[in-house]
Design a protein around this nucleic acid. Sequence first.
DNA 1: CATACTGTAACTATAATTATTACAGTACAA
DNA 2: TTGTACTGTAATAATTATAGTTACAGTATG
Lengths: 135, 135
Amino acid sequence: MNNTRFATSIHILTLLAMYPDELLSSEYIAGSININPVLVRKEIVHLRKKGWIDSKEGKGGGNTLAVPARAIMLSDVFLLVRQSAILGRSNDPNPKCKVGKQINKHIDHLYEDAEHAMLKRLSRTSIADFVKQFS
Amino acid sequence: MNNTRFATSIHILTLLAMYPDELLSSEYIAGSININPVLVRKEIVHLRKKGWIDSKEGKGGGNTLAVPARAIMLSDVFLLVRQSAILGRSNDPNPKCKVGKQINKHIDHLYEDAEHAMLKRLSRTSIADFVKQFS
DNA sequence: CATACTGTAACTATAATTATTACAGTACAA
DNA sequence: TTGTACTGTAATAATTATAGTTACAGTATG
């Protein structure tokens, strides 16, 4: 996962958590992140499916948090945007080789363990906690 | 880091650890990983600089471990291949926005914590431990 | 019915990663 | 002393992943 989706999602959720009484447009959010508004809408699709965001269409529409910021844990945000192993991709080794044959099994297991350790850390922080740091 | 360098390095070190008395050529190693031999040599450059591998040029040459497999911790292998944050890149947010202005500082800190948790897990396993799993 | 939003598809541009080719340098051994 | 089999490395091409853009339909508001 070498993209900006985690950072983008956290940014979106942070903005919505800081202005809980306003409907923020994708254009406004995009202006803060400094990316294209369509990317914001695409990311919001996932956040909404997860139940974290409500979007209102039409004039005066926008986006708002659908749940308290303290209910959104960073580990869940990570799992939402996760597309591949954080430690990188595996190779497609030679099955005729004793090592090649079984290495992916062991690597997958290792990656799972390592990722779990990281998730445990992320599960200690909510969006509310994250927002508290802002001055 | 969305590449295969960590998996490739582990694969190389695993092969060398399993055949400690042989000089393995980059072509042989590449055949096991199923990648181009030049990629193996490029990766070996880094592993050698780290002092883990000795390479012998010329006919009958090849590569061998320079230290006991138990001395190579997976956390150190990770740090060697690490090129960017495992949780992905940051955006380049708008400094005129209150949130955009300081979010990268907080995200960097979070990433550091999360990565540290993962490193701690990786520091528990050596190449020797990893190799023990092979049957 | 003009305006300002979201939703989404299609496409383009850019960046990251991997693969390939080519060849110089080195060591061995017939 | 020459053929062979390696490593070392540069240059470049190919592929894949990611981000950006354009376009426009759909929706709510005043």
